[in-house]
Nucleic acid binder design. Structure first.
Lengths: 358, 358
DNA sequence: ATGAAAGCGCTAACAT
DNA sequence: ATGTTAGCGCTTTCAT
């Protein structure tokens, strides 16, 4: 129970040198140090089990090896996955630890988290899938924080201090929709929770584009408003929408879901309503989460380059202010690929519904 | 980009008082302060947008409002869920933020994380499902850290400085196994990844007990060694085991899986092998994760009181050293309940195999 | 009712 | 090649 960790002073005394000498070995400035002194200091260090206090160091330097990570909810498996990648990269590549916060997409919680991070001396933050309004991020950046935003794009025209990295959501949606079109579907829908985020608009645009080009009917369905921070609830919203779809005789035959979790919920709802996937309705997800591989039927989905994106986010959040490449920008990852599995099949009957809504 | 946050000095100057006075209002010692002084200080504070530095404060007080959270992998949806509950509770009830680390059940990574936490001034740590060897936890506790371990029990007889909270895993396994027995199964198996943790032994004990009492054949199957930190890989190990089971004519008809994720993988593997759940094989999971509700077939599982356990872990990790209830102990949560869904049915044919292995 | 001053453990000039 | 020293922003006696 004794919290008597030894200090740099103790080491200096023990090694019979000054604190600066100890500080110098701590910071690797050992080039012009007498080898025996170095040895002595090192010996004293582990004799005393000395651990430098990051705390005191950062009070002096203003730097703390911590990065903040805001996610809507860690209980969302996709965010958990991204968080793991980010933490691993920050730790292994940069020796930084990660401070997390669940924001539930709540503006107040996000702002409070930023304040806390700031008070803790943290100046690097990765924000996953934030609110529509990004002004608080800009404000944080203006306060001197390096902020990287995931799953959003920079507002065109405006010079942003916030860095953006995202998958090419439009391309992902095109891939997903194209897969349905290729299977012969002409009544298409994009299924999502209510509420528009940037990534969702991008996906919708990609969906609509391919649907139009194929001369297919493409509608956007939302499962209603939800406190949608993306874990258990998103699944339930998807499930409810699936059940509603099952009850609708004029339902689409091919559905693109906003993400894998929603797709999984949707398939459950469709089953609840007595329908079979893919026999009655085909479903495509987006994310490429490992859970999509073991669902039944196995979910056809679009794989996002999560590890690469995580690495890029960390790289950007770690940039030094003076860097030449220091300017925040935008990084849209093109590497999205279709993973074809068992949730897509040709539509039940060859219904010719071309002229309906076109 | 200006990192010019104002300090307590700035506020003091602006309000024309001393730093101690500002410090006093910061710490609520305003009882015998002239109201107008208080007002003036407060006004200066938000005129300057002052935020006290947790850093400087903690260097002085030795306290930092941070708790460490070690998980094998955030990508495991169950750990993500627990992490969310812990973060929410620590934040809302105690104003603490959470520092996470993925340990991959690696001793070196765990130790390194403890060192870092210590250097950061963090003295409260929650460790999820750690290694078999708990000595590093004891060592941390002896260094003055408050450590709470999840999913393990205190070593009987030994006086531990580490606090333990866990679900009643034995009871959970009894419930799961009992459900299979009630459906008429006599060839039972407990399916797990290789490697024994305390929670797994408890589950196995509960399983074996019920199997024996029912006069049923109960074997323990493991899907082989895996770098089992519990995310994508656990699913794949489960899947491989399911496929192997499908190929074995002497397979059990009822399987208890070590957790929901493993159960989900197992069902996928069984399907890969051409079997149907629950027609050919019944499967029960353990966790009660929301994903188990939307699988097909919906997974019968044992619900663990996650929110309550998370709250208890946080409560314990927050205890003050001088407290009367300060002694670390053990808390086994009894509230485990069976959630019956669709993955359990009577065995395919009434095979009488009582005398085989008993 | 308010102020002065001594650190907390470390870093980084600036001596020597 | 090593030592001295002045802080970093705050808390906390102890004075006034």
């Amino acid at each position: 129970m004794q919290d008597d960790m030894s200090t740099i002073q103790d080491v200096a005394r023990h090694a019979a040198v000054s604190v600066s000498t100890v500080s110098n070995v701590l910071n690797g400035r050992t080039d012009q140090m007498k080898p025996e002194t170095l040895e002595r200091v090192k010996a004293s260090m582990d004799a005393l089990q000395y651990r430098p206090s990051t705390l005191a160091r950062q009070l002096k330097t203003g730097q703390t090896p911590l990065v903040g990570l805001l996610v809507p909810s860690m209980a969302n498996p996709m965010y958990g996955y991204i968080a793991r990648e980010i933490e691993a990269c920050a730790q292994e590549q940069y020796g930084h630890r990660v401070l997390i916060g669940n924001t539930y997409r709540d503006a107040g919680k996000e702002a409070a988290f930023f304040d806390d991070l700031f008070a803790h001396g943290v100046r690097r933050v990765i924000v996953i899938s934030s609110l529509a309004d990004e002004s608080h991020l800009e404000r944080a950046a203006e306060r001197g924080m390096t902020v990287v935003s995931y799953d959003r794009r920079a507002t065109p025209g405006e010079q942003s201090k916030v860095d953006h990295v995202t998958a090419d959501n439009e391309a992902a949606a095109r891939l997903a929709t194209g897969c349905l079109v290729a299977a012969g579907h002409t009544r298409l829908a994009f299924a999502t929770v209510a509420g528009i985020t940037e990534s969702r608009s991008d996906k919708i645009r990609g969906f609509l584009e391919v649907a139009r080009d194929a001369g297919a009917d493409g509608q956007v369905l939302d499962g209603g408003p939800a406190n949608e921070y993306g874990d258990a609830v998103i699944v339930e919203v998807g499930r409810a929408l699936g059940a509603a779809l099952a009850a609708d005789p004029a339902r689409p035959t091919g559905v693109v879901a906003v993400n894998d979790l929603f797709a999984l919920g949707l398939m459950a709802g469709l089953r609840d309503g007595g329908l079979r996937v893919p026999d009655d309705v085909s479903v495509v997800g987006m994310d490429g989460h490992f859970l999509s591989a073991i669902s039944w039927p196995a979910l056809t989905t679009v794989q996002l380059p999560v590890t690469e994106m995580a690495a890029e986010m960390v790289r950007r959040v770690m940039r030094h202010d003076g860097d030449p490449s220091s300017a925040p920008g935008q990084c849209v990852f093109p590497g999205v690929t279709l993973v074809e599995r068992a949730s897509v099949a040709p539509p039940p009957r060859a219904v010719e519904s071309n002229g309906d809504n076109a």
